[in-house]
């Protein structure tokens, strides 16, 4: 799947990013450039900082050193404490969580339309049309009037993807989107993500689904103990990992 993206515009840029939880150094000198349309899969053992890394991109976590910049409408915006910048970036970056985090007191449709109506000031009718077409895309339009608690895990995660897409983001972050799902529901969520990837969305995905990484990713990044240990196109990454730590990790998750 690796394509030549060297001419594409950089949409996310991390330069020497460092972060600590108290004394614990979670991210060490992270350098990363994501290009427009690129699909990146981040893998690594638990506690390696991969979730923290993508959560820093939309400021769910604050980094303490280094620069994180996101391109919004061709403008490069740096993440600072300026709430305006944070909100501009969040409008451009959609996120899907491991535990779905749908709003349980709102219907599926209302979950999808809330942010477009109140943040983007989309007229209600238009927002609902967009929401319904997205529900169609994730193949659950018939659930629009139900509440999240009435849906299966797989359906909820597809709603969560649709909810993020409603804001028409340029970039999508996925934080272990299939880890909380029953095995038979993983595929329906991955299928939606693959479709999205084929449509050209820029995606950064933290996942252990190596099949997905093989077929979709332009680049696979392996993290351990807060550092990027190794990265490369999936063919190379899976066939000849250079680092010992990568080989150990792949050995553990590929054949158990």
């Amino acid at each position: 799947m690796a394509r030549d993206l060297s001419n594409a515009q950089t949409v996310i840029e991390l330069v020497k990013v460092n972060k600590w939880y108290g004394q614990f150094h979670v991210l060490t000198d992270i350098d990363l450039k994501v290009r427009h349309g690129e699909k990146i899969v981040i893998c690594g053992p638990s506690g390696s900082g991969k979730s923290t890394l993508i959560r820093c991109v939309n400021r769910l976590e604050e980094h303490q050193e280094g620069v994180i910049a996101v391109s919004v409408d061709g403008r490069r915006i740096e993440l600072t404490n300026d709430v305006k910048n944070i909100e501009a970036i969040r409008r451009e970056v959609g996120m899907v969580f491991q535990s779905f985090n749908l709003f349980p007191h709102l219907t599926i449709l209302h979950n999808l339309t809330l942010a477009p109506i109140w943040v983007k000031k989309t007229p209600k009718k238009e927002a609902e049309e967009i929401a319904m077409s997205l529900l169609q895309r994730v193949r659950i339009p018939e659930q629009a009037m139900k509440f999240p608690g009435q849906l299966s895990g797989g359906q909820q995660q597809r709603v969560a993807i649709a909810r993020a897409l409603c804001m028409r983001p340029q970039i999508m972050l996925f934080d272990e989107p299939t880890s909380a799902l029953d095995p038979e529901m993983v595929k329906e969520v991955l299928d939606v993500m693959i479709e999205l990837a084929n449509e050209g969305m820029t995606m950064v995905v933290v996942t252990h689904e190596m099949g997905f990484a093989r077929s979709v990713a332009d680049r696979v990044i392996f993290m351990d103990r807060g550092e990027i240990v190794e990265q490369g196109p999936p063919t190379e990454f899976f066939a000849n990992p250079r680092e010992e730590r990568t080989r150990t990790f792949l050995g553990q998750i590929l054949h158990h």
Partner: peptide, 29 residues
């Protein structure tokens, strides 16, 4: 749950809307 705040943040709702639409309705219930 913390995830509710994070989901609202990730959508860019901002403090006032997050509180009014997401947090308070659930908390008061």
């Amino acid at each position: 749950p913390k995830g509710q705040y994070e989901a609202a943040d990730a959508l860019g709702l901002g403090y006032a809307r997050k509180t009014f639409f997401i947090v308070l309705p659930q908390a008061l219930q």
